[in-house]
Design a protein around this nucleic acid. Structure first.
Lengths: 404, 404
DNA sequence: TAATTAAGTCAAGCGAGTTGACTTAATGCA
DNA sequence: TGCATTAAGTCAACTCGCTTGACTTAATTA
């Protein structure tokens, strides 16, 4: 039996941890700066030229980096820049939503190489998981067609679905109660043989923005995701923060006032679900996206009214987020058509005053992130990549070996 | 000139980083578990007995740990537990407030060994800093009288004062504008020869709760501090989070509604400043504490009305904090008399529903923390201790050596 | 052409955790 | 009583990964 020791302590580290950290630091540096020579890397990471040389040699033989042509830039021996090899690693991302599921395969750089989607029967996980496993197998086959190395270099499967997770049983259909109870991760792990990780949809959006979007290289950012529900993905100190129980950022359930008639959850005012209800749309319609787009372009009165109302609450949400987190930037992403998201951001201006309203800002207080409906699946896929290659505190620690 | 390289990268690490981390892990384990044998530590930290033995030997010769009597607990050689030596390190904490300043000296365990306070002329830093330096010199002398090692083992000076910091110039007297502009840290560093760090008062409160209070050993906690203003100290992943520009948690400026008449800052409703105003008290009165206490004990109608009003907004603040951070617990601390803080917490119940309302909680959703008016100074002092001895990601990284 | 500058390599060194055998000192059972 | 068992802790050789300092290579500049 694996009874846990009552002693509380963090794990120690050793040379393996050192090496793992340094490799990750190199990879991140190349990711953020495009291409760097060994000498550049040595200066940037504070390591010696020799240490960097050894690590780069390692990474090159692992197929994670390649040398580019030498460049002459003044006196001295020309430097040989290295860059990441996109095909150095792959991951699968899965987005499970109420009526739909999407799977993508991405490479180390976060480029989507294969994608597939399917309808899901509502809240019937035992049927749904069959569909999902087939979907995953599909993109995995597609990926194998692109790279013969794909299976060997597959670092994991990331799953994103609406949270929150692990609360008390709910009959709220909104919450997909059957999925909440279903042993999803175990089933997927068994069905795919991959490492599986879970995050909520907003966190996945933030992960996507960080790997290829507006949060690239930004260590303190909050990503507001306006989808069927609404949530916030938190990038704090360069890592995704998920709270004591994995539900940080689930702001859809935040009440808009302490009591009284205004005390409704944010989700009821500023989410696509609220939009569908306001406009009498059916989210199961296959052309729902086009319907929304048309209404925005036509400046439909009811649509505009919803935008104004949602913007009113979102403007305030941004104010609260800035006041609480003091981020470098807030990114608004959405599952809605880009035109709608853009109108929403415009309607949120002017922003409320806050501590973010400082003299020398590098980044805008609020920016529009991606509105690609595949971005949640992309973010889900980016999570295992990040776990495997980003410099994380947890990555230096010794891992508890499985008990005999 | 120290022009910063345009290359963005994290710093690498080496054996020194490994060793530093492991020492810190040992210290934290002893702090959290009281006393542990080398074998216990080896199991808890995943290191080998031998590695632990070497580290403990080191720490012992550095005077940071001592062996206790061997204990027999079943078969096998008796184990020799070790515990932290309180006199292993000291730090000075400084609390600067609008009319008052306090300094304390603490040991490694967070026990206050010396304390002193003085009045400050309002918002006149050039005069104030003289008083402060003298105050610090005083507790430093007292400390030297207690331990001959004190100077050698002094790890730094922590400063806590009301934030936010670094915003655009303000004429708001509330913000202590002259202090905002004054080069405080440089002056104190020069005047004391110590390493100086700064945090806001709520962060200091959280640091205090973490070293000796309700957040001891809790990795995800939010500490609401109701003082002259109101703020939140954020313990995330076991470290204090201070945001992109050091102002995370400054929720006093959070507006209570997106627009309209209810759109006032939280600080105007739930802070001691608002209480003073509501009751017509003068915060500069020397017996203000007793006055408040008497009013609470007498159940004065205006006092009770203020408590109800503040509790109304605070209840909602807790709801928002839980929804955003998903912490293990929320701690309410205050500069007010304990009776008042206790009534406030009582008045906040029942709490609003939130994701924190989960089946198997280990810790209460809301608990009353310390109301000792010295706790901010204590937290300020705990910050350099934490920087020096807690396992932090930053502690493993190589530090950029000062340019020639 | 020679001096200068910078990238990158070589080989020895060193520090910190690891390994496996050993010692010490209890308990438990015959 | 005596011996097997169990667990704490030590010893000494080892390994791994970064460091050091000298050296090589290849460009620019005077």
């Amino acid at each position: 039996m694996d009874d846990i020791s009552p002693i509380r302590a963090k794990s120690g580290t050793n040379q393996e941890g050192t090496s793992a950290h340094n490799r990750r630091v190199m990879i991140e540096a190349l990711r953020l700066n495009g291409a760097l020579s060994r000498a550049d890397l040595a200066r940037a990471t504070q390591l010696t030229k020799q240490a960097v040389s050894n690590i780069i040699e390692d990474l090159e033989s692992d197929g994670l980096v390649v040398a580019l042509d030498a460049v002459r830039k003044g006196r001295g021996q020309p430097s040989t820049p290295y860059r990441l090899v996109p095909e150095g690693a792959f991951a699968i991302g899965l987005h499970i939503d109420r009526h739909l599921t999407r799977a993508v395969a991405v490479d180390l750089m976060g480029s989507v190489l294969a994608r597939a989607e399917a309808n899901l029967p509502f809240d019937e996980p035992s049927k749904g998981v069959e569909i999902i496993l087939e979907l995953i197998a599909g993109v995995r086959r597609d990926l194998a067609g692109i790279s013969s190395q794909s299976e060997k270099r597959l670092v994991g499967l990331g799953v994103a679905m609406p949270g929150p997770f692990g609360l008390k049983d709910s009959d709220d259909k909104w919450m997909m109660p059957a999925w909440q109870k279903f042993p999803l991760l175990e089933t997927l792990a068994k069905g795919t043989g991959l490492n599986v990780g879970l995050q909520n949809d907003a966190a996945a959006c933030a992960t996507a923005e960080r790997i290829v979007g507006a949060a690239h290289g930004v260590d303190h950012a909050v990503c507001l995701y306006v989808g069927y529900g609404i949530g916030a993905g938190l990038i704090l100190n360069g890592e995704l923060y998920s709270g004591g129980h994995g539900n940080a950022g689930e702001i859809g359930m935040a009440l808009l006032a302490p009591a009284g008639p205004g005390s409704t959850p944010l989700e009821h005012r500023a989410s696509l679900a609220s939009l569908y209800q306001h406009l009498g749309l059916n989210p199961a319609d296959s052309d729902i996206y086009e319907q929304m787009n048309a209404l925005v372009l036509a400046e439909d009165a009811k649509m505009m009214a919803w935008i104004d109302g949602a913007a009113h609450d979102l403007r305030w949400s941004v104010h609260l987020i800035e006041t609480i987190f003091d981020p470098q930037t807030v990114i608004l992403t959405s599952g809605a058509p880009e035109a709608l998201a853009r109108r929403l951001v415009e309607a949120m201006h002017p922003l409320l005053p806050s501590i973010a309203d400082r003299p020398a800002r590098m980044l805008p207080r609020l920016q529009l992130g991606t509105t690609d409906p595949w971005s949640i699946a992309l973010g889900a896929a980016a999570a295992p990549i990040s776990r495997a290659f980003d410099p994380l505190f947890s990555a230096i620690l010794k891992t508890r070996s499985a008990p005999a």
